[in-house]
Design a protein around this nucleic acid. Sequence first.
DNA 1: AGCTAATTTGGTCGAATGGCCAAGACCGAG
DNA 2: CTCGGTCTTGGCCATTCGACCAAATTAGCT
Lengths: 229, 229
Amino acid sequence: MAKTELATRRPAAAPAPADTDEKVLLAAGKLFREKGFAATTVREIAAAAQMLPGSLHYRYASKDDILVALMRRGVERAIRAVELATAGEPSAIERLRLGLRAHLELLCNGDDSLYVLLFDWRSLTSGALSGVIRERERLEAFWEGLLVEAHGSGVARPLLDIELVRHFGFGAINWVATWYREGDGRTPAQIADAFWSFLAFGLLHESARPPDLDTHFAALLAASFKKGS
Amino acid sequence: MAKTELATRRPAAAPAPADTDEKVLLAAGKLFREKGFAATTVREIAAAAQMLPGSLHYRYASKDDILVALMRRGVERAIRAVELATAGEPSAIERLRLGLRAHLELLCNGDDSLYVLLFDWRSLTSGALSGVIRERERLEAFWEGLLVEAHGSGVARPLLDIELVRHFGFGAINWVATWYREGDGRTPAQIADAFWSFLAFGLLHESARPPDLDTHFAALLAASFKKGS
DNA sequence: AGCTAATTTGGTCGAATGGCCAAGACCGAG
DNA sequence: CTCGGTCTTGGCCATTCGACCAAATTAGCT
């Protein structure tokens, strides 16, 4: 399209290379989510992006490249969405709740790159694997930071294996993508808030709570701390 | 098929047809878990099961049939393992804890059929889909039963959306399969118990608990109850 | 306008896939 | 020993895959 003039100095003859790339990743994400990476053909991606297979090859040398680009985008978007949602919130605990919301909304209503990143993990070949692993670790470290801050704010139980907590919450939230269907009465934000209340306060009634609960937690932790290797 | 007259009347000349089928499903499960269904070839399965592609075709007419058989087996094993682990336990809450343990142990250390059932869902073609959906609903209904019993025993909060709780716990537990590696210091049983304590008692300290907590839960529930369709 | 490089076109290529089968091997029954 | 079925063999086939390319086209630049 237009908007050339000064400013955006395009390489040469590009209608809108950025937008075209966007269209490819959008189409690829949709197909990967529906059928999985291996079951999707490059021809399908090209058709869905309204171009011929050769044109697709010009932009991405291989199918793997598309997957890697999509996953990078997924990490980027996930971090950005949560950063945006939590910015300006002073309470670390409340940041966590808002972050969960944002993550789940992106996963359910956003584009499919985050879903592919989370669920099409095995499709990465060893060559591309290392690059995406680093990206994915950025996402994990980002959440770890949110959790450490929240834990440090004092309202959480004193002895918690943060890594285990992260896996716990990440699993519960991400699994929503496997059963959520739009318009079944629950919005992603409602689900996230309900999950947050489960996470924060537990499912049992106060009367069932043992008096030595934190000692109990500590004992569980002791076991997971002795991870040798 | 076999099993006619009395006892183990073999059809004719079978070394051990049941064991051979077992070997196929074991090999297929391993490969499907490692690379996914679509990325696995029938030749690989045959080779891993120490037979030629033609022999595999004799037992399973199509690759889809193998997947369906494997998933059926996964449901069967998952239900059986949890039933076995919870049998004889009088406390419904304790049954839940033991069930989580058994489920996670099967998922981490058991054969791969449960993993494939849970994570290779999209690979099912529409033809085979309906049959496996019914099986999978059996598994969900089974857990729903455990949860309803536990909820009815009185120690849980009064107002809980059981379906949401099931999705929550199922996600957290199943996600373990994506990061668990044998010998990193945590056994599946330890992880299950830690997750159980998170689930039961929550992550926040008692002092952070609002006095009107159950009203808070009720409000969350009100939203998820008005699901129209 | 003319030049030049970016981009698209429409198709080809060898390799690999899932499904299939005719022939034979095997083994208990009679 | 011979029969009759189950099961295995090893390869074949049509199809489709990802990758690739030379030629044509486009559009910004001087």
